[in-house]
Nucleic acid binder design. Sequence first.
DNA 1: TTTAAATACGATAATTTTAGTCGTATTTAT
DNA 2: ATAAATACGACTAAAATTATCGTATTTAAA
Lengths: 132, 132
Amino acid sequence: MLKLTRKVEYALIALRHMQTLKPRKLTSAKEIAEAYGLPQQLLAKTLQQMARDSIIEAVQGPSGGYRIMSDLDKISLKDFFEKLEGPLGIMDCYFDSDCIQLGACNIRTPIQRINENMREMFSKMSLREVTQ
Amino acid sequence: MLKLTRKVEYALIALRHMQTLKPRKLTSAKEIAEAYGLPQQLLAKTLQQMARDSIIEAVQGPSGGYRIMSDLDKISLKDFFEKLEGPLGIMDCYFDSDCIQLGACNIRTPIQRINENMREMFSKMSLREVTQ
DNA sequence: TTTAAATACGATAATTTTAGTCGTATTTAT
DNA sequence: ATAAATACGACTAAAATTATCGTATTTAAA
Ligand code: FES
Ligand code: FES
């Protein structure tokens, strides 16, 4: 309950690792996976996704790899989480989508209040705060 | 990711329902389950757990049921969540328990920082705020 | 120009967690 | 006595998460 996924965890580990390297130095999925004992393929996918989201940059070919691309100060944890895992909320109560009830859910409003608080909290934290 | 469990959801629905009743009026698991279309047995377990935790009171025998027992203003959402689901945190980083790494996890400190923020946030919200 | 090391990514398998059910015991008002 | 409720451990089912596989593409370097 209220747990992060591995994907996000691996992403954070990778970013934090990249920040220890000198700027524009590349590192590969293999390097990171071996250094921290992570499943390489899964980590690779996560890196690829971050590359699609322009958080990091990918360079192909041998001696290729990844490097940090954007300013981590400018990315909130909320945006980061949402890029990797979709909309952030304790529960999916947009429309009546996920809710068990058909129409009148008695906890909808309070749930949304909690959601707002969460989003606000993670909006206030930057990715750099976490990775530095 | 960062989702509530059904157990907690059912608990909130039940509490909110009880608050609409007049004080000390009993309501049964069956009543609530039918009113909101929830699985009765699972709801019952949740109610039983809340009873063990003294959030609500159980009365046995026919015409028995449950009623709110404690002052919901005095229970934080953090305590509520933790009673139902155990320690609250985006990730289990007490000791090295859950972490993939043996010793040196590079995101441990930042994760704990996030955990603290979450706990603080849910400490500031009372159960009544949600159920009223 | 061949090779090898890397990214890219869809499909699928394995695992874990969550959700729900079953069976049975106990309590107690009627 | 009966029936309606709570109580609870064991089990099953379903869903979500995590991990792997297979294959294609890119490109530096031999
Ligand atoms: S509408 Fe979100 S829990 Fe019911
Ligand atoms: S110690 Fe918590 S993620 Fe590593």
